[in-house]
Design a protein around this nucleic acid. Structure first.
Length: 470
RNA sequence: GGCGGGUUGGCGGAGAGGUUACGCAGCGGAUUGCAAAUCCGUGUAGACCGGUUCGAUUCCGGUACCCGCCUCCA
């Protein structure tokens, strides 16, 4: 059995991964709040944990890994967006707008993440479908005196959990000292956070022992993880910016509700996507969506490759230069593995991934396999990274969109070959050069070897520019 | 202010206390009518200052700069 090592945020160390149950390895990853297109930063954890999911499936077997990623479909940002839509003329009631908005956003999310070649998780629970479980957990917390009711709210008492702050490496006192959080008068402690809050009549709300209301942000993950994975599970993942307060609060709630269990055992956090050295964020306005890149013509596989070139615990930037290099590499590899049957995954690739998801190291191994012309190992090994998969194929056939183009290129390659034959006799290469220059200008790569001519349309292929030659 | 992380060759980007990361670009060569593609070869880089060590880019301490979290955030 391969030994997987993962950096656990809880201990700030790389640890040997030992699942609670090798027959059912369980992972929970925080998913999106659904009111808008996912930006590149949102996509990073999806890709990173997709690689971990694939690695776990490789090691423990496809049927022995359960992966849960939630959709947060109850949230004040969603409500705010729906109100904007109302102001813009949408006459439906708020809940109807929200339902449409969240459904549509989930559809976008699936389409965009599918384009990046990520596998769908085993379960993708929507928060609104687990309100009963949240209410039950909140009741438990109140019963255990870890939470209290105040002015229609239910708040978690951070002092109820002695280890509060352990995950994010800070003490309650430190946090209060530098707290920028607005302290509501009904809070016993500034750091206490909301489990349940009242809703107005038009806002989404559910009946509860504390009146009609809606859950706070953190409780959904605790409730859904317990429902779908059990009170103790193996891996909890998400962006580094969720470490505090989201994950700290999740852990406090869950551990207080189920003190016999341990909630998540390995916490993994990916670093941020940056733009010009700053975190990509909606609030900073420096973001672009996955859809933006796809629409610009960047294949999902190229975006995925660029992401995996940087270790998940390091900040990364998207640049067009990286995109171009990734595209060239993938094009070369795809040509190399065309028609090849995948063999065994190269042990070096598994070893690299098993070392805290060293995807850059794994890619270096792929370069070696390509270099060694071991196409079947290259294919199998790339696929464990979700690269060179059938699902992401097609884009590398850039260029001739229709049969007319293909036959035109076919025709031109024959003409070029004939012109070259004649030129070899006559030593007059002017016609060859003319054809070649025109082809290059139209974005066609001209490959002339000793025994033939090959025309490969590149990314800038423009059939209109070949008109003069037709 | 508190806590955490980073700084690697022209660019991107890893691992490892001592032996080539890797990719791209560049340079030299093979090949080519010339190119392209391909193949071969090629780079003592590790922010700065100290310390530990036979030996540190890798461990420890300090300095500088950068980033993240502490408010919603992947």
């Amino acid at each position: 059995m391969v030994t997987i090592r993962l950096h656990n945020s809880l201990t700030r160390r790389k640890e040997v991964f030992a699942p609670l149950d090798a027959a059912n390895v369980r992972m929970y990853v925080c998913g999106p709040t659904v009111y808008d297109r996912a930006h590149l930063g949102n996509a990073r954890p999806v890709v990173v944990f997709d690689v971990l999911y694939r690695l776990l499936r490789h090691v423990y077997g496809d049927a022995h890994v359960t992966y849960v990623r939630n959709f947060t479909d109850v949230d004040d940002k969603i409500n705010a967006r729906a109100r904007e839509m109302q102001k813009a003329g949408d006459t439906r009631d708020l809940n109807a707008i929200i339902r449409t908005l969240t459904d549509e956003t989930i559809g976008w999310y699936h389409a965009d993440m599918d384009a990046l070649g990520t596998l769908r998780p085993t379960h993708e629970p929507r928060a609104t479908e687990f309100i009963a479980q949240m209410i039950a957990m909140i009741r438990t917390l109140i019963d255990k005196e870890c939470a209290y009711e105040a002015e229609g709210h239910v708040l978690f008492d951070v002092h109820a959990w002695p280890d509060y702050g352990r995950l994010s490496g800070r003490s309650v006192d430190d946090m209060i000292a530098g707290a920028r959080v607005e302290v509501a008068p009904y809070k016993r402690d500034a750091m206490d956070f909301v489990l349940w809050k009242p809703s107005t009549d038009e806002e989404p709300g559910w009946d509860s022992p504390w009146g009609r209301g809606r859950p706070g942000w953190h409780i959904e993950c605790s409730a859904m993880a317990e429902e779908l994975l059990g009170p103790s599970f193996d891996i909890h993942g998400g962006g580094l910016d969720l470490q505090f307060p989201h994950h700290e609060n999740e852990m406090a709630q869950s551990c207080c509700a189920r003190p016999d269990a341990c909630f998540a055992r390995y916490w993994l956090h990916n670093e941020m996507v940056q733009v010009d050295g700053k975190k990509m964020a909606k609030s900073l306005g420096n973001f672009f969506t996955v859809r933006d890149l796809l629409d610009q013509g960047w294949p999902g596989e190229v975006i995925r490759f660029v992401m995996l070139q940087t270790h998940y615990r390091k900040p990364m930037d998207w640049t067009e230069e990286k995109g171009r290099q990734a595209r060239a590499t993938l094009q070369k590899w795809r040509a190399q593995v065309a028609g090849v049957t995948p063999a065994e995954v190269h042990p070096g690739v598994v070893a690299a991934l098993s070392d805290d998801l060293n995807t850059a190291g794994a890619i270096a191994e792929l370069h070696q396999l390509s270099h060694a012309s071991d196409a079947s190992a290259l294919l199998a090994s790339a696929q464990i990274l979700g690269l060179l998969t059938p699902a992401l194929s097609g884009w590398e056939q850039a260029g001739p969109a229709d049969k007319a183009d293909l036959s035109l290129l076919d025709d031109l390659s024959r003409r070029l070959a004939q012109a070259r034959e004649r030129a070899r006799e006559s030593k007059d290469f002017s016609e060859v050069d003319r054809l070649k220059a025109a082809l290059v200008a139209a974005g066609v790569e001209v490959r002339m070897s000793r025994d033939g001519v090959e025309l490969v349309p590149g990314p800038d292929y423009d059939s209109a520019k070949l008109g003069a030659l037709a």
